[in-house]
Design a protein around this nucleic acid. Structure first.
Length: 317
DNA sequence: AAAGCTGTCAACCGCAGGCAG
DNA sequence: CCTGCCTGCGGTTGACAGCTT
């Protein structure tokens, strides 16, 4: 004996709900409460499947549902929980006040997953092109090498995890040594104001040894009139948006880290490649910055203390 | 201006688990 | 324990709006 289908398609309406249908559903539930979905449509005078009514109520009509843009905090929560729980949207939704599982699922698929995928966090191969000589620096980490960003697309996509983010930040720290030793970085595609040509390249040294300065900005004469040693094709630094020292500093640091691609041979997923794009690095203050994962700011704060970088990973591990 | 393309998101579908009889 | 019902969940679809060419 077969089960009675929850939704018999006979004469039932599908598709977008009208305002009139919404009102009927709201009125009925206000009077009789939720539940009894199978017979609710008939009682409420709706030509809808009970399942459709429940979904409409749960995802759209239920009082208190929060709609609209997701906040950065919500982004972080979703990413972390997705890493921990997988695609258990209902469970994730319970951690976000008044967001529906459907909305979170849609937001993940439409926004977060793409941003994370754009990181190319798991490219398979990496060349040590940029600074093989630099890798001999004493700061180099044996299981990590740094290279210019590769152009190849990620061979597969994988959901990001908090652990991955933490590892990313760790690798950034490890990469700083060899890069700094190289003292020469190519400027990737950084947007400049003032009409600078994209093809222009400038190079500048990374923070060198810093005796007793109080901040990286001080150490490197970061100011509105910042002068950056140039090499190769010159770029009009003065044309950059230097309305604030933080902005200039942000550009510099972003350009440096945009040049990083790191291989993590000890990754749980095998040889794993991390790269960081300029827009994922943000200066928080004169001596700290945040590395975002997948275009999102997260809790991994890289603090510049004299000439050393350390990573404070907040909330993970 | 129009056609085609892309992204977004509400809604649908099928499955699985919990529960009552 | 078995069966059937109800509900919840996650994957997928399709309409539509906005963007690009």
């Amino acid at each position: 004996m077969g089960r009675t289908p929850f939704c018999s398609s006979d004469g039932l309406k599908k598709g977008a709900w009208t305002a009139e249908e919404d009102q009927k559903l709201i009125s009925y539930i206000q009077k009789h409460g939720e539940g009894g979905w199978r017979f609710l449509p008939q009682k409420a005078g709706l030509q809808r499947c009970g399942k459709s009514c429940r979904l409409r109520w749960a995802n759209y009509l239920r009082p208190g549902i929060k709609r609209g843009d997701f906040t950065p905090e919500e982004d972080k929560t979703i990413i972390k929980l997705q890493a921990e729980l997988g695609n258990r949207w209902a469970a994730i939704a319970r951690h976000l006040s008044n967001r529906t599982d459907n909305e979170i699922k849609n937001y993940w698929n439409a926004h977060l997953k793409k941003r994370l995928a754009n990181m190319g966090a798991d490219q398979v191969t990496v060349s040590g092109a940029s600074s093989s000589s630099g890798n001999s620096d004493s700061n180099a980490v044996t299981n990590t090498e740094c290279a210019k960003p590769q152009q190849s697309e990620p061979t597969k996509k994988r959901s990001a995890s908090a652990l991955l983010l933490n590892k990313l930040a760790t690798r950034v720290t490890q990469c700083v040594g060899p890069l700094r030793a190289s003292q020469t970085l190519q400027q990737p595609t950084m947007p400049f104001n003032g009409g600078a040509e994209n093809s222009d390249i400038f190079c500048h040294p990374l923070p060198s040894s810093t005796p007793e300065s109080t901040s990286w900005a001080d150490n490197n004469n970061i100011s509105n009139s910042l002068t950056i040693p140039e090499c190769g094709t010159t770029n009009a630094i003065d044309e950059r948006d230097s309305s604030s020292s933080a902005g200039v500093l942000n550009d510099i640091v972003a350009s440096e880290f945009a040049s990083l691609t790191c291989v993590d041979e000890l990754s749980d997923w095998g040889n794993t490649n991390y790269s960081i794009e300029p827009e994922q690095v943000q200066i928080d203050s004169s001596d700290s910055m945040t590395v975002g994962y997948g275009g999102l700011w997260d809790d991994d704060v890289i603090v510049v203390d004299d000439d050393d970088y350390t990573v404070g990973s907040l909330g993970f591990l």
